[in-house]
């Protein structure tokens, strides 16, 4: 339990939320939320020091390059930006990262991944979307595959995943497919989040909240 203090520095950050509140809504302890605030401060000040993570800052952290366009990074950024105002606020950052916590139920991770892959937000992953994502992945890697091979990969995946054969993958088909291929959501778990206070020990110096655990 914390005593609910926030530093002046923290209160001056737009969209800052009380670590006690964020902790109560997520698998993070109050100390971990405070450690995440240290990470958030670093990310949100890398280009524009305004206490908000802009897309360029997100790209810089992921790719060491603020101009690197990437379909999947765009999708992740947009899903974190719950208010859809073009920036990630601290509360959005913590709540979104909680999906990636090792203790978060697989069901939540599966649903989150589905929303990421449902590019046009139709409630289904369509063949064109899957092909677009495969092409985007090839574009960012050194892998070169002919259009024929890409078509075969997409076709084979649809044969396996689209169990009712209606040409699109619905949330239940996705759930079943992930159950058979659990490695598909491996990237939805960040072991770092279990040790976030160790990764950012500087929070201890700034912390005004005492954890009982």
């Amino acid at each position: 339990m914390g005593c609910g203090h926030s530093s002046k520095r923290a209160r001056s950050v737009p969209g800052y939320e009380d670590p006690n509140t964020l902790s109560s809504e997520t698998p993070f302890t109050v100390s971990e939320v405070e450690a995440l605030f240290e990470l958030f401060k670093k990310l949100s000040s890398s280009i524009i020091d305004d206490g908000l993570i802009h897309k360029e800052e997100f790209q810089l952290a992921l790719f060491r390059n603020s101009n690197r366009k990437n379909l999947f990074a765009d999708r992740v950024f947009d899903s974190f930006d719950v208010k859809r105002n073009g920036v990630i606020e601290f509360g959005e950052f913590v709540r979104s990262l909680s999906i990636f916590h090792p203790n978060t139920p697989a069901e939540d991770k599966i649903a989150f991944a589905f929303r990421l892959y449902d590019l046009r937000q139709t409630g289904f992953i369509e063949r064109e979307e899957l092909k677009e994502m495969v092409l985007a992945l090839l574009n960012e890697s050194d892998l070169v595959l002919s259009d024929d091979v890409v078509e075969q990969i997409v076709h084979k995946t649809f044969v396996d995943a689209d169990s009712n054969g209606d040409g699109k993958i619905d949330p239940n088909e996705w759930k079943d497919f992930v159950a058979k291929n659990p490695s598909l959501i491996k990237n939805m778990t960040l072991p770092y989040l279990k040790d976030i206070t160790l990764a950012f020990p500087s929070f201890v110096l700034n912390s005004e909240v005492e954890d009982s655990d």
Binding site: L39, L43, A61, L62, F63, N70, L71, F72, A73, D74, R75, V76, L97, F100, L116, Y117, L130, M133, V134, A136, L137, E140, S141, V149, Q152, I153, V154, K156, T157, D160, A161, F177, N181, S183, L184, I185, K186, N187, L190, Y192, A199
Partner: peptide
Amino acid sequence: RPVTMNAFELISHSQGLNLSNLFDK
């Protein structure tokens, strides 16, 4: 040769989905 690669498996290796980079110091 039959294609056995899973499209979602391929996609899941995108650097854009690898958020561990956010934690790099």
